[in-house]
């Protein structure tokens, strides 16, 4: 009898909790143009540093359960930039990145492990699938996630909402992604050091 009386209340409380604890979707298409990936190739004869700024993607993050973190980050291949224009043309060409045929470099984040949360910051190891030049590879990399509640207004005054900042560093080998494998390794290192620094926004509905 008592159970019957309180059942609707319990159900509504559970539902409310589920709604409140639902992950927030953050959009990483940054109107400020801050999101970037820095890549470094340190070969014996030459060191190449470059950046990529054409970043987009969606990430689901639950501040109550930071371990529940999934999403996909896309880097536009033609946004890759190096200081020398001729070198950039080579980089985007068919032999190297082939930006015309493979316009996107993507990283699908599937799960977090070794999650440690302190205040707004969560550090963990993210496992996901990186796709470069059409070749998929599973990698695990350290990541720092900072949840900035109600900070969107500080960046975009016309919007209320939250920000999610992701910093990740990882290494990939160009030979694993069929990027001119085994060629010019004395000048263009096989190992590519990538630093991802991105911020996503989740505007609140008014």
């Amino acid at each position: 009898m008592i159970m019957k009386k309180f059942l609707p209340l319990i159900v509504s409380l559970l539902l409310a909790n589920a709604v409140l604890a639902a992950p927030i979707t953050f959009d990483f298409k940054d109107p400020k143009g801050v999101n970037n990936a820095v890549f470094k190739l340190d070969a014996i004869l030459e060191s190449i540093n470059g950046t990529a700024t054409g970043i987009s993607g969606l990430v689901q993050f639950d501040p109550e359960a930071p371990g529940a973190f999934t999403g996909k980050i896309i880097v536009a291949a033609n946004s890759l930039n190096v200081p020398n224009s001729m070198m950039k043309d080579h980089l985007l060409s068919e032999k190297w990145i082939d930006a015309a045929k493979y316009p996107e470099i993507s990283f699908v984040m599937e799960k977090l492990s070794n999650v440690k949360t302190s205040g707004n910051d969560t550090t963990a190891d993210v496992t996901g699938t990186i796709t470069i030049k059409g070749v998929k590879k599973t990698i695990t990399a350290p990541v720092k996630i900072s949840y900035l509640k109600d900070k969107l207004k500080a960046r975009l005054p016309q919007l209320d909402g939250d920000l999610l900042v992701i910093r990740a560093n990882f290494k990939v080998k160009r030979s694993d992604f069929n990027i001119n494998p085994g060629q010019f390794e004395e000048k263009v290192s096989d190992e590519i050091d990538i630093s991802l620094s991105i911020a996503g926004q989740a505007p609140k509905a008014k």
Partner: peptide
């Protein structure tokens, strides 16, 4: 001492997110 550069990248820090981001300027070096 490196290759000739057609653009220069300088890094700035976004005050809200504290992310370091590149500013690319066309400059011949």
């Amino acid at each position: 001492l490196g290759w000739t550069r057609s653009n220069e990248t300088r890094m700035e820090i976004d005050p809200v997110t504290t992310l370091e981001y590149p500013i690319i300027e066309k400059r011949f070096t």
